[in-house]
């Protein structure tokens, strides 16, 4: 088990050199995005104006439940990754360094990730309440009109993932 701080260059380097099957505990920011946010990112990117700078960042395929009063975030486990396979090129152009979700990726998406040095990580699917306790801050940073599909910035502590690609 290795602890990785996504805010430091050493942390990003450790992420890039992690091996398939490694269990990592992540600290730092994650950016949620699922189907509709990906569709919007592609449109905005084609116009040359993505709403946030995602270079060097990690994307988390997640649409949380609403946060009850007094809690940072609601239940927030990963959603199925394969639905985002067709946006692999968008992730490459945005310069992200990691993607977190659950399940398999298409061979073509996998090739894009390897070429671009993007790591694909899996989080425990269906552990939304458990993962909520690893999120210390959450705020919407883009596409608020998408509701649960908006892009949130989560700051996490000890967020468990296994390296898949």
């Amino acid at each position: 088990m290795r602890r990785i701080d996504l805010r430091s260059p050493e942390g990003i380097k450790a992420l890039r050199s992690a091996r398939k099957g490694d269990l990592l505990l992540l600290d730092g920011p994650l950016y949620t995005a699922r189907d509709q946010a990906h569709r919007r990112l592609r449109e905005d990117l084609s116009r040359g104006e993505p709403p946030i700078d995602l270079r060097g960042k990690v994307i988390y395929y997640c649409g949380p439940t609403p946060a009850p009063e007094g809690m940072v975030v609601g239940s927030c486990g990963p959603t199925s990754s394969y639905r985002m396979d067709k946006y692999a090129d968008v992730m490459e152009k945005l310069g992200v360094v990691g993607l977190i979700g659950k399940g398999e990726r298409s061979p073509s998406a996998g090739r894009t990730f390897k070429k671009a040095g993007i790591r694909y990580l899996i989080a425990p699917g269906g552990a939304g309440a458990y993962l909520a306790q690893r999120v210390v801050r959450a705020q919407v940073v883009a596409y608020p009109e998408l509701g649960p599909e908006a892009i949130y910035e989560f700051v996490v502590e000890g967020f468990p993932v296994v390296v898949e690609i």
């Binding site: 009850p68 927030c76 959603t79 939304g128 309440a129």
Partner: peptide, 12 residues
């Protein structure tokens, strides 16, 4: 945790 906090088991 879900039982204790009332958070749903899964976000879906």
């Amino acid at each position: 945790i879900a039982r204790k906090t009332g958070l749903p088991l899964c976000q879906d």
